[in-house]
Design a protein around this nucleic acid. Structure first.
Lengths: 207, 207
DNA sequence: TATTATATACAAACAGGAATGTATGTAAAG
DNA sequence: CTTTACATACATTCCTGTTTGTATATAATA
């Protein structure tokens, strides 16, 4: 029973990607073999090699599942930031809280973040993934900076720091929070109070 | 020319550890083979297997090079914190700046941090390394909290947040900074302004 | 519409290197 | 003379990439 329809084929492809996510999470990217992935997906390596050139391609397929939607959300955030009707500090706070909520609710996203952060070695071809991430960071910082600039012009800020300094501080805080959130798998140290931490962080800036 | 003296043997051991650091950094821990490490150290796998049970043991040996001194420094920091003569906010700031300076000056430390953060997959036996790290984090937060409590009682704080909230925020900030510092290999985004970022972070709290 | 041809979506078998751990050899230190 | 500190050789397992086989969907053609 080979040669399925196009829809069937797309379904097997997705099965392979899902299986790879499970296997990567459990064994790490490097130690995961295509046989592990294939058997987890209930297919043979033949199917895997049909849909993907190698393990790296599967990795990127997984990554796109999170980061293509994420770029969309970034654009949303940009649109929101341009909206002057809302308190910019509330917007920054809501944006960060929203990401944490996503991680809480969306199993796949949570797993992918965990793979990217602590189940993957950024060498060779993966090294340039890091560059992409760093560039995303830069544009993200700029957006936060714009929001803080709005807050400043609306006289909402308690501090005399520049919007840029505030934005960088917030970005580093949130990066740290994401890392700790992911690493705190049992939730005893950071996950349970993540939202409070965000609110405290923003409260520190409110006049 | 085999069978060196004990001092020679200890020297080869150190050569292997240094070689492993280089190889891990270049190829990632998983894809590094004992042959890679051996030839980098100008010995054979026989020497490696004589000194270490397997790759994992070498990994831990590398880790100890950084984290045993680090624990010592933590105790120093604790001692300093108990000293009431100095401004606690200055102490926190100096402590973070000192770590960044270490990373700037100490090549080995920099490389080891990079290996631990982005050249290593935390699976199986490595998973419990993460637990150790998280526990270190907890005690570190507590120390920062004590310092903020001192600052509060000396009326040095601008905010009404609890010392605990401030400490967590600082810890997450610094965790994020370390990650970005390591990932920003060319220094164009974060490294060059790391010390300023720390000062801004603390300035935000000063009355 | 029925038939034929071709491309698709895999499964299964094959060939190769590569890495690990172990076992054995060996020369010098103690 | 024994143990140490390795080097060398060996056995085995594992993983990868490719090749071949094949049943069927789908397009082409008559």
């Amino acid at each position: 029973m080979v040669r399925k329809t196009k829809e069937d084929a797309e379904l097997t492809r997705q099965k392979i990607v899902d299986a790879a996510r499970t296997v990567f999470l459990a064994r790490g990217v490097s130690k995961s073999t295509l046989e592990h992935i294939a058997s987890q997906a209930d297919v043979t390596r033949g199917a895997v090699y049909w849909h993907f050139k190698n393990k790296t391609e599967i990795f990127h397929a997984i990554r796109e599942q999170v980061f293509l939607p994420l770029i969309d959300r970034m654009d949303d955030t940009l649109a929101i930031t341009a909206d002057n009707s809302q308190n910019p500090l509330d917007q920054i706070e809501a944006s960060m809280c929203h990401t944490i909520q996503e991680l809480n609710d969306n199993v796949e996203m949570r797993e992918i973040y965990e793979i990217m952060m602590i189940k993957c070695e950024y060498v060779d071809e993966f090294a340039l993934v890091l560059h992409q991430i760093m560039n995303n960071c830069s544009s993200l910082v700029e957006k936060i900076e714009v929001a803080y600039a709005h807050a400043q012009s609306q006289n909402l800020l308690a501090s005399t720091l520049t919007p840029r300094a505030l934005a960088l501080d917030t970005h580093l805080f949130f990066g740290g929070l994401l890392h700790m959130w992911v690493k705190d798998a049992d939730g005893s140290k950071f996950r349970y109070q993540a939202l409070e931490l965000i609110k405290s962080h923003i409260k520190l800036r409110r006049k």
